[in-house]
Design a protein around this nucleic acid. Structure first.
Lengths: 150, 150
DNA sequence: GAATTTTAGTTGCAAATGCAACAAAATGAT
DNA sequence: ATCATTTTGTTGCATTTGCAACTAAAATTC
């Protein structure tokens, strides 16, 4: 019964691969769309939280964000109340690309859910949210250097 | 309703990240476990099919497999009936690691499904299989250089 | 309030990833 | 049988990814 992990892996790689190919026309290189949409939807979010949100190494996030900034999709503003933090915001250029990403995501979502009725669509989302929550704590645990016992 | 894509992405990255960290003790570097289990379960499979099975670029698969061979986890045997193909088989060393990977996967699966009753577990697997199928054709389509219209 | 721990971010490596572009064998079409 | 196409695999190159190791600011503990 290891199938759900594999299925999820296969689906995720497929979707990511498709997105990366489709966004190349918009100057967005591998993975960048991930960060951009989250910054758009969470203006002022900091790098560390963003990394945790999408479950990616903080150094990977740092570099992806740096590149987004270099390419003028986002800006980093020094937080006034906290000298460590740099708050992230989407620029006008970033705001223009957002609908493109969103449109693609909505379409892929449609393709993914083809053949499922409304109740099943609701159900899979609900169940995935639970799984996401379940696995999130283990991710943090292992990322911090702790060893899972099993 | 783009949430299922995101949820799947988050879960997949979490699981992959955890696996990569946990398998480091067994000389398996990033991603290798993916290929090894599939070769174990499908002896004689060729590289191209394996790449398609896990939805990864064929050049990425080529290099991961090359490394698995170099580290003696698998062997490549020239197919007798087809001079292009190289069939893949797990070595004794590979066979020894398989249970380790499987045990981890089973555990992660358990963690993932925590809080879901038997019916829900069955349901999520069934729905994910449909989604996997739905998205697989788009992956192949886009990978071959075709453009999705939406 | 000084000392310790946690949080947020960075840089140096080494490795993985994937697109392009290629070669050669196998298959299909006429 | 010949020619075109598809399948399988490779290498070059640029980019992404992530673990280690490190600063510095903030929060917590004593």
């Amino acid at each position: 019964m290891v199938e759900i992990l594999r299925s999820i892996g296969v689906i995720a790689r497929s979707l990511d691969s498709i997105s990366n190919i489709e966004f190349k026309d918009y100057d967005l290189t591998k993975g960048q769309y991930l960060y951009l949409v989250r910054i758009y939807e969470n203006p002022g979010i900091i790098q560390e939280k963003l990394a945790g949100m999408i479950k990616v190494d903080k150094t990977t996030a740092a570099r992806a964000i740096k590149k987004l900034e270099k390419n003028n999709f986002i800006v980093r503003k020094q937080s006034v109340d906290n000298k460590k933090e740099k708050k992230l915001y989407v620029t006008d250029k970033g705001k223009k690309v957002y609908p493109v990403i969103n449109r693609e995501n909505v379409y892929s979502n449609q393709v993914a859910l083809k053949g499922l009725d409304a109740a099943e669509q609701k159900q899979i989302l609900k169940l995935l949210k639970i799984v996401e929550n379940n696995i999130a704590s283990d991710w943090e645990y292992v990322k911090k250097g702790n060893k899972r016992e099993y």
